[in-house]
Amino acid sequence: MTEYKLVVVGAGGVGKSALTIQLIQNHFVDEYDPTIEDSYRKQVVIDGETCLLDILDTAGQEEYSAMRDQYMRTGEGFLCVFAINNTKSFEDIHHYREQIKRVKDSEDVPMVLVGNKCDLPSRTVDTKQAQDLARSYGIPFIETSAKTRQGVDDAFYTLVREIRKHKEKMSKDGKKKKKKSKTKCVIM
C-alpha cells in the first residue's frame, strides 16, 4: 500500500485542523484551538488504489514558523489553505509557496490551493482571484467548507493525484537520464 505524506499549511484560523478532522473523523470542530502540530493517518481508496494518507496539520501562528522547514522537508505534497473571508490569509499563500519551493529546492512541488469556509456569506476573496492565482502557479484550486464537508475529500484526493503525477514524471525523467548515460565512448 502506497503511503502519501501530505502537509496542510496556511495562516492561523483558516480551518486547516477543521478540514483535516472532517476528512479523518467526519465531524466539524467549530471551536478554535490553535494547533502546534498534529499528525493523522487514514486509509482510503483513490482511483481504485488503496493508500495510506499521513497528514500533518501544522501551526499557522507566526511564533511556530521555525518548525516549518522541518515538516516541509518531509512532506510530499501540500494543501495551501486560505479562508475566503480573510484576504490576508490569501496573500500569505505566496509566502508559504515560496518557502516550500526553497526548502524542497524545487520549482515543481505537488500543491493544491484550497479556499476554505465557502459556506460563509462574508467572502472577501473572489473565486476568480483564487483561480487566477492557482493557474499562475500551475496547481489545482478547490473551494471547501469544513463545516458542510463540501470539497473536503476532493481537496485531499486531488493532492494525492498531483503527487502521483509528480512521481510518474520524475521516474520518466530518471529513465531518460539513465538511457543517456548508457551511451559509451570508444577510443581507438
Rank of each mutant, 00 (worst) to 15 (best):
Q25V: 04
R135D: 14
K175G: 13
M67A: 03
M170W: 15
A18R: 02
V160C: 14
L52V: 14
I142Y: 11
A134S: 05
C51W: 12
F156I: 08
D153L: 06
V109C: 08
T87R: 07
Y96V: 14
L79T: 02
R73W: 07
L52E: 08
F28R: 01
T87A: 10
M188I: 05
G48P: 08
D30N: 14
L56P: 00
Q25D: 07
C118S: 10
S65E: 07
V14N: 12
K42Y: 04
D47L: 07
F90I: 10
D47K: 14
Q61D: 15
K5I: 01
I21T: 15
I187M: 15
T158P: 08
Q131M: 08
T58M: 00
Y96F: 13
V186Q: 14
L53T: 13
K42I: 08
Y137F: 04
K117I: 15
I187F: 06
I55W: 01
K167P: 10
K88R: 11
K182R: 06
S65F: 09
S122K: 10
T20H: 00
G115N: 09
A83R: 09
L133R: 08
K180M: 06
Q25G: 07
D57W: 00
P110I: 03
L52C: 13
V152W: 13
V44M: 15
T124Q: 09
K117Y: 14
V103M: 13
Q129P: 13
K101V: 13
R164S: 11
M72L: 03
S89A: 15
I21Q: 08
S65P: 06
K101A: 14
F78P: 02
Y137I: 08
A155Y: 13
A18W: 00
Q131P: 09
D57N: 00
E49Y: 12
F28H: 02
M72G: 06
E3L: 10
T2V: 10
G174A: 03
S17N: 00
L56W: 01
N116H: 12
Y32R: 01
K176V: 14
Q150R: 08
C51E: 10
V81S: 10
V29F: 09
E62H: 06
A130T: 09
E49F: 05
K5C: 03
I24H: 02
G115R: 06
F78L: 04
L159V: 06
S136Q: 12
I139M: 11
P121N: 13
T158W: 07
C185L: 02
T74M: 04
D47I: 02
M67R: 06
V7H: 15
S89G: 13
K128T: 07
E3D: 12
S17A: 00
F156P: 04
T124R: 08
V103G: 10
V81T: 12
R73T: 11
E63F: 03
V44P: 08
